[in-house]
């Protein structure tokens, strides 16, 4: 496995205000993720997993500390620079797929490519078809999300996440809304993306079985990370 560090988090903290109170889901967190690793993040509700995921994905910014992803210091980026970085370097997979309901599967996958003015229609077509092919949904390109099953929707979402060939994929409970079989298919796909295509994947999950598909699992509690297996068992009890 590649020992090049892809994600480097140093003393990253995040706090925000909710009404009168200040909430600090992450406090001086350190994290290193090598390139091509499939990492699972687990922890109880409110532990800050999704917050950490959002930081890594460039959706949110740490209140303090540094965060370097793929060699780029995200903490120094403005909102528009982050947007640009996201479009090129990160694919996001949500629990509830978040496909645009009025667009077909093809059009949903094509969305990120519309941002690249250098791509012509033919080039976009090639990439979209290749992405849909990879997730096994080439025959459903003209279907709208309402015409697809949950598992199929998630696969379209994955196709959209990878169509620009980003180095990083973040997934927030990707199997949370799926039945066991569909979930297993998704996890296999993610595994293949990491092992065969060298993508670095960070996945947040509640599901122990889902975490087993990952190479490494980290546990997040009260804003702090650990690799403790005992904690894991405690979670099951």
């Amino acid at each position: 496995m590649n020992t090049e560090i892809f994600i480097e988090c140093k003393k990253a903290s995040k706090s925000y205000r909710k009404g009168q109170n200040t909430i600090t889901p992450l406090e001086e967190l350190d994290l290193e993720v090598p390139k091509g690793e499939f990492l699972a993040l687990m922890g109880p509700s409110g532990s800050g997993k999704t917050t950490l995921l959002n930081l890594i994905a460039g959706i949110d910014r740490p209140t303090s500390g540094t965060l370097i992803v793929g060699g780029e210091d995200l903490t120094s980026y403005s909102r528009s620079e982050l947007t640009k970085w996201r479009s090129l370097s990160c694919g996001y997979i949500f629990q509830l797929y978040h496909l645009v309901p009025i667009l077909t599967a093809y059009e949903n996958v094509e969305l990120p490519l519309l941002l690249d003015k250098s791509l012509g229609r033919k080039q976009r077509r090639e990439r979209v078809e290749s992405a849909l092919d990879l997730v096994g949904l080439a025959d459903r390109a003209d279907h709208r999300p309402s015409e697809l099953s949950g598992g199929q929707e998630q696969r379209v979402a994955i196709a959209r996440a990878i169509v620009k060939d980003p180095g990083l994929l973040v997934a927030d409970e990707p199997t949370g809304d799926l039945d066991r079989d569909s979930g297993a298919q998704i996890l296999e796909l993610l595994k293949a993306l990491a092992e065969d295509y060298g993508k670095t994947i960070v996945m947040v999950t509640h599901d122990v079985l889902a975490a087993e598909a990952a190479r490494r699992t980290l546990y997040l509690d009260k804003g702090r990370l650990s690799e403790s297996g005992a904690r894991l068992k405690g979670e099951l009890a």
Binding site: T83, Y92, V100, P112, R160
Partner: peptide
Amino acid sequence: AKESAIYQTIGFSQVS
């Protein structure tokens, strides 16, 4: 609202 978030997550700017 949600769709807007999706677009922005994908990389569309607020202006877009």
